[in-house]
Nucleic acid binder design. Structure first.
Lengths: 345, 345
DNA sequence: CTGAAAGCGCTTACAG
DNA sequence: CTGAAAGCGCTTACAG
C-alpha cells in the first residue's frame, strides 16, 4: 500500500531541476526538450528521461515571455444562454482543444459594455486570436478595428466585409427545403415563417421563393407569412391557411418550433401528415424534430461544423493566412416521416 | 478624418516605458501601479497618468512568474452538448467573469481519456482551481487526488464525500411538487418518472413518496413508474394509467418532456387540464413548459444559481476556506396553468 | 519615499 | 554538440 501523497506536488519542478538530474546545462536541457537540432541524440534522451522522471511541465508563463504567441484564444459570446450558440461553441472548442490551444471563455450577455470589458480582458491576457460568437445570424458590429490579433466571427457575421465570418447558408437552406418538397411531388406549398427581423427568416424565404419560381410556382400565401418563432404562431397560421380554402399539400415552417405548432394544428383538424400535407422545419433541433408526430423532416444548420470551420480559420489567420468575407456554410437536409413519399390516394 | 491606425498596437508598451515617461524608476512605477503604500501621492499620480497615456497593460505572464496564482480557473465539462450543462456554465462564467478571474474551457465529450488530457492541460497552464461540470446529477469519479489546486464539482457531485460538490436538491424537488399538488386539492396523484438509472429520477421519487405518506396517501401506481425521458413515454404511461380505471386527479411527470407527452395524451383523450387532471413537470425548460397547452407548472432546478454557487465556493477554496461535502441547492416551483386551482365541477 | 539589484523560469544568440 | 550569459516584463526585499 503506497501512501497517497507519494509524489508531493509542492513547489513545481523546474527546468533547472531537470538539467541537474540529467547532468547538463540549463540551455542544453531547454534545447533537448524543444527539439532543437543542435543536441546529440544521447544527450537529448537523457534530458527527456530526466523530465519524465520528475514529471516536468514547463511553466507556460516563462515560455510566453519569450514567445510571440501564447497558445490561447478568446471565445467572446454574446449570449451563452442560447441554444444555437452551444453547438458552435462545442465545435470550436473541439477544434482548438485537440491541438495545443486553450480557450478562454467570456460571455457578454448581450451587453455591449460588458463585451468591450471582456475584449480588454482577453487582450490583456495576450490571446493569439478571438472568435466572436453571435446569437443570431444577423450581421453584428465589427470589433476588429484596434484589435491587434486576428478575429473571426461565427454564426453572426461581422458587418464589415473585410472581416472573416462564418454563418449558415440560410438562402440555400430555403432552396433545398423547397426542392425537397417539389421532389416529393408537392406543388401547393406555404411558408410559415419566423420573425422578419431575422435574416435567418428573410434569407430562407428568398431561397424558397426563388426555388418555387424556377419551378414556375409561387408560395401559397406568398413569401411574407412572417410571425413569431413559436408553436402558437405555427398553429394559428396553419388554421388561417386551411380556412382560406386554398389547396395546400405542404407547409414549410421557418423553424422546428413553428413546425411543431403546424403539426399539432393539422392533427387536431384531422389532416394527415404526410399523406395529405407534408411538413418540414429548419434547425433540426432533435428534441423537437425527432420526437414530433410524425418525426419532422428538417434542415440541419451544421452548427458544430461551423464552429470547427471558424476555429480552423482563426488558426490559419494566426499563422498568417486569411480569407476575408462572409463564408456561408452548407446545411444538410434530414428527411424524416413528415415529408415521406406516400401513394397519394 | 483620422486614420484608422492612429495608435499602432505594435510592440506592446512595457512598465519600463511607463517609468520612463513618468520619470521614475521601474521599481517605483511597479509599486505605484500596484497600490503599494510606500509611494508619495504625487508620484503615484504621475505614474498612473503615464500608464493611462500609454494604455499600459501589464504583461500577465511576467506577473504570474512572480505571483502565487494566475487569475485563471479551469472549467472541465463532461458534455457541453447538454442542455443542463449550459445554465450551470453560464452561472459560473458570470460569477468568475465579473471578477478578475478568467475561465479556461475544456470539454471532455464524455471521454475519460480526454478528460485526463484536459486536466493535464489545465494544470500545465497553472490554473488556480477547477470546476468539474458533470452531465447528470449522478455521482461521478473524483479527480481531486493528485491535483494540486482546489476542485469543485457542479451538477454531478463527486463520489468522494471529502470533495466539495453542488447539485440540485432533487429529493426536495419531489416533495415540493407533491406538496403543491396536495395544496391544490389533488389526492390521486401518479408519478410518471424518467429513467431509474438517474438519481434525478430516484431522488425525486423518494421525495414525492415521502410527501404523500406524510399526507397519509400513496402514489397512484406506486413510485416505480420508470421509463424514458421522452414524450412518448409520457403518452404511453398516461394511456396505461387511464386505462387502469383508477381515479387520477394529478400526474407528476419526471421531466417537462415527459409532461408534454402526458398533456398531449390527456388532451387527445378528452381529459381537461387542469380541471380534471393537474399536470406538472421538472426542469422548467421554458421551450417546453411555458409553451405547453396549457402552460406547464414545473420545478426549476436553479442551475444558473448552482453554477454561481460553485464558482463562489471555488474562489473561497482558492483563498483557503472550504466546506466539503455535497451541497444540495434549493429548487423553485414555477406555477402555471396546468395546476391552477379550479372550481371542481 | 525612491531606486539598484536580484530573481521568477524559460529561450536564444553567441562563444567555445 | 555544449554552456555561460543576456534577456523576456515584471515584483520584491534591501539599502539609502
Amino acid at each position: 500500500m503506497s501512501v497517497i501523497n507519494s509524489k508531493k506536488p509542492k513547489a513545481s519542478v523546474t527546468l533547472t531541476d531537470v538539467a541537474q538530474l540529467a547532468g547538463v546545462s540549463l540551455a542544453t536541457a531547454s534545447k533537448a526538450l524543444n527539439g532543437r537540432s543542435q543536441v546529440r541524440a544521447e544527450t537529448r534522451q537523457k534530458v527527456i528521461e530526466a523530465a519524465a522522471a520528475l514529471s516536468f511541465t514547463p511553466n507556460p508563463f516563462a515560455q510566453a515571455l519569450n514567445a510571440s504567441h501564447t497558445g490561447t484564444i478568446g471565445m467572446l459570446t454574446s449570449d451563452l444562454d442560447n441554444r444555437f450558440v452551444l453547438p458552435v461553441l462545442l465545435g470550436a472548442e473541439d477544434a482548438f482543444g485537440s491541438g495545443a490551444t486553450s480557450v478562454l471563455l467570456c460571455d457578454a450577455r448581450g451587453d455591449a459594455v460588458r463585451e468591450q470589458h471582456h475584449l480588454n480582458t482577453l487582450l490583456a491576457r495576450r490571446v493569439d486570436g478571438i472568435v466572436v460568437l453571435g446569437r443570431t445570424t444577423n450581421p453584428r458590429p465589427s470589433i476588429t478595428a484596434g484589435v491587434p490579433v486576428p478575429v473571426v466571427y461565427a454564426y453572426a457575421p461581422s458587418d464589415d466585409p473585410a472581416d472573416t465570418s462564418f454563418t449558415p447558408d440560410n438562402y440555400t437552406a430555403g432552396r433545398q427545403a423547397i426542392e425537397h418538397l417539389l421532389a416529393r411531388g408537392r406543388r401547393s406549398i406555404a411558408l410559415v415563417n419566423g420573425e422578419p427581423s431575422y435574416t435567418a427568416a428573410t434569407d430562407r424565404a428568398a431561397g424558397a421563393r426563388d426555388a418555387m419560381r424556377e419551378a414556375g410556382l409561387e408560395l401559397t400565401g406568398g413569401d411574407e407569412l412572417y410571425g413569431q418563432w413559436s408553436e402558437s404562431w405555427g398553429r394559428q397560421c396553419t388554421e388561417t391557411l386551411l380556412a382560406s380554402g386554398r389547396p395546400i399539400d405542404a407547409i414549410l415552417a421557418g423553424s422546428d418550433q413553428i413546425a411543431r405548432g403546424v403539426l399539432e394544428q393539422l392533427r387536431e383538424t384531422g389532416h394527415h401528415v404526410p399523406a395529405e400535407v407534408a411538413v418540414m422545419g429548419f434547425d433540426n433541433w432533435d428534441i423537437l424534430s425527432a420526437t414530433a408526430r410524425p418525426p419532422l423532416t428538417s434542415i440541419d444548420m451544421n452548427l458544430q461544423e461551423l464552429g470547427r470551420a471558424a476555429a480552423r480559420a482563426l488558426s490559419d489567420a494566426i499563422s498568417g493566412t486569411t480569407e476575408p468575407g462572409v463564408h456561408r456554410l452548407p446545411v444538410r437536409l434530414v428527411p424524416r416521416e413528415s415529408t415521406a413519399s406516400v401513394q397519394r390516394l
